[in-house]
Design a protein around this nucleic acid. Structure first.
Lengths: 140, 140
DNA sequence: TTACTTGCAAAAGCTTTGCCTTACT
DNA sequence: AGTAAGGCAAAGCTTTTGCAAGTAA
C-alpha cells in the first residue's frame, strides 16, 4: 500500500525542492514569476516552464494553494490549510486574514446550493495599511 | 450637474444596449464569448473586441460584476447587487446562492485585516445537481 | 536502465489595443 | 461637427506543451 493519497510528485528534483522551500518559507503569496526569480538565485538556469509544471504537481498533491484575483496572474500559497485572504487593491499584496467561517453560514450555503458543496473561498478586498500610510504621507 | 456618479459610458450605441440587455436578462453568468455569440444573433457584425470594451465600461459604471474562477475565462454577472455564487467544478456553470453573510463575520474580518476592507467575495465550489444526476444516470 | 523532469522555445488561450471608419449626441 | 465607439486584426500576457537531453531512483 502506498503511503500517500494522490501523489503525482514522483521524483524529488533539486528544482522541485527549491520551489517547495520558497513557498513554505514565505507568507507573501508569490506569483509564478516571483517564484521563478527567487529560484534563479539558487538555480540560475531554472526555467519558468519548470516552475509552472512543479506548481501544478504541488497543487495536485494539495501541498500548496492557488489564488487568483482578477484575470491577471495567479498567486501561490504554501499554506495548504484552508484560510482566508485580504487583497490590497492598490499594491496587489495578499495577506492572510485570521478568521473562521461560522458553521451556520456553511450550513445555510449547503442548504441553498444547487448541488453538493465541497469547498469555498472567502476574500476581502480593500487598501492595506502600508498603502494607506503611503497615501497619507503623500498628502503632507 | 451630472445625473450620474462615475459614468464612463457616454454614448448609448446599439452594441452597448444589446450587451447590457443580454446580461440583465439572464442569470447564467455568461463569458465574454457567450455574450459575443448571443449578441451576434441580433448584430451579426459585432466584434469580440467591442464586447470586451463594453464589458469594461459597464464594470466601471458598476452596472455588472466580473467573476473569475481559476485562470480561465471571466464570467459576467448582470446583477450588480452583492451576492454569492456556487461554481460547479464539473461543468463550470455558476449559480447564484441565496445566503447573507453574518455581520459578525464581516466585523471580525475588519478587525483582523491588515487594512481597510471595502468589499468581499464568497464562493462555494462543488458539483451541481445537473452534473450529479448525469453521473448517476451514467452509473446505470 | 527506466521513465519522470528539465530547458528551451513555440503554441495556446483570453484579453487588450492601434488604426481607421462609423455614428451617437 | 466633434469625438466616443465600432470593426478588424495584431499584439500582449500568462500559462501550457512538444521535444530532445538530463537525471533520480
Amino acid at each position: 500500500m502506498s503511503k500517500s493519497k494522490s501523489n503525482k510528485c514522483q521524483r524529488m528534483t533539486l528544482q522541485r525542492r527549491i520551489i517547495q522551500e520558497i513557498l513554505h518559507n514565505t507568507t507573501s503569496h508569490p506569483t509564478a514569476e516571483n517564484i521563478y526569480l527567487e529560484a534563479r538565485k539558487k538555480l540560475p538556469y531554472i526555467s519558468l516552464g519548470t516552475v509552472y509544471r512543479n506548481l501544478k504537481v504541488l497543487l495536485q498533491d494539495n501541498k500548496i494553494q492557488e489564488l487568483n484575483y482578477g484575470k491577471g496572474v495567479s498567486h501561490f500559497d504554501g499554506n495548504y490549510f484552508p484560510h482566508y485572504h485580504f487583497v490590497c487593491q492598490a499594491c496587489g499584496r495578499v495577506y492572510d486574514i485570521d478568521i473562521t467561517m461560522q458553521q451556520g453560514l456553511l450550513e445555510s450555503a449547503k442548504a441553498a446550493a444547487m448541488g453538493e458543496i465541497t469547498s469555498h473561498r472567502l476574500e476581502f478586498y480593500g487598501i492595506c495599511n502600508a498603502c494607506l500610510m503611503e497615501k497619507q504621507s503623500q498628502a503632507n
